[in-house]
């Protein structure tokens, strides 16, 4: 689990990729969808290391034998291994054989998320994308999350402005129990790795990124986090993982996610 003695320097983006890849470790043969460069690279890392059974797409409608790098295409076109038009994406996800890592705008203490509007739904202060497939995803297959900016504006007090994906909120259950496919896994942010392992699925800090304190995470979260007696430090990427990430991201798109591409170990920053 720990490799913190290793001196190889790594970026925050590389730490996030390595930590996020863990979410697919025990999934077996499912569709791994990572939205945005870091979740996508995390799925790619999981597929090329500990879970080769994962299926990933080219971002359009084909499954590829090996992960497609984000950014401009490389000289060798990917080997196509299957077809994934939108109709089939829905059919597959309703059956549960998918695990997505998505990047919502807001999350609340129930794990409910929002990508639709800021403010009132009828007359929003800021209109965003719309709910997309979030409602269906959230009640049919496992979901994990990435937030590039862990602040109390993203992890909000109360409920998110418009609940696009279901969470562990009994007030919204239809059948007196959580929706049958609801399975929220990991939350990876620029500060920490969190999960839903607290009492009643409360969000807890699973590990702190090197140089980040629990109080710093709590101060940037709009609701109380469950605190474990001992909070681990997020494992640094190994030299092997860093070499693989470089191969999976030849265009170095990961460098553009966090402003200034900061170091992953902020004790040395």
């Amino acid at each position: 689990m720990t490799d913190t003695s290793r001196p190889t320097p790594y970026s925050l983006a590389e730490l996030v990729i390595t930590a996020a890849a863990e979410t697919w470790r025990h999934d077996g043969e499912v569709m791994a969808t990572g939205i945005g460069p870091l979740p996508r690279l995390a799925a790619a890392l999981a597929k090329t290391t500990f879970n080769p059974a994962l299926q990933t797409t080219d971002g359009e409608c084909f499954y590829t034998a090996s992960p497609v790098p984000p950014g401009p295409a490389t000289d060798t076109p990917p080997v196509i291994e299957g077809w994934s038009p939108y109709d089939r994406v829905f059919s597959a996800l309703w059956g549960g054989k998918r695990h997505a890592m998505v990047a919502p705008v807001q999350m609340d203490r129930f794990g409910q998320t929002n990508i639709s509007v800021i403010g009132d739904h009828a007359r929003p202060k800021a209109a965003m994308l719309g709910a997309r497939g979030f409602p269906g995803n959230s009640v049919h297959h496992p979901n994990s999350f990435f937030f590039a900016n862990h602040t109390s504006r993203t992890f909000v007090a109360g409920e998110v402005d418009f609940v696009c994906s279901a969470g562990y909120n009994p007030a919204r259950y239809l059948n007196g129990q959580p929706p049958r496919g609801l399975d929220l896994r990991l939350i990876v942010t620029d500060l920490a790795v969190l999960d839903f392992g607290g009492p009643g699925h409360a969000i807890q800090v699973r590990s702190l990124h090197p140089g980040v304190s629990f109080d710093q995470v709590q101060d940037n979260t709009g609701f109380p986090l469950h605190r474990l007696e001992h909070v681990a430090t997020t494992s640094a990427p190994t030299a092997e993982q860093l070499a693989l990430i470089r191969q999976l991201d030849p265009n170095n798109v990961r460098r553009t996610v966090f402003k200034g591409d900061p170091a992953g170990d902020r004790r040395t920053a």
Partner: peptide, 10 residues
């Protein structure tokens, strides 16, 4: 009928 939408504002 569907499960989609359960638990959301949709």
């Amino acid at each position: 009928p569907t499960h989609i939408g359960i638990g959301t504002d949709i």
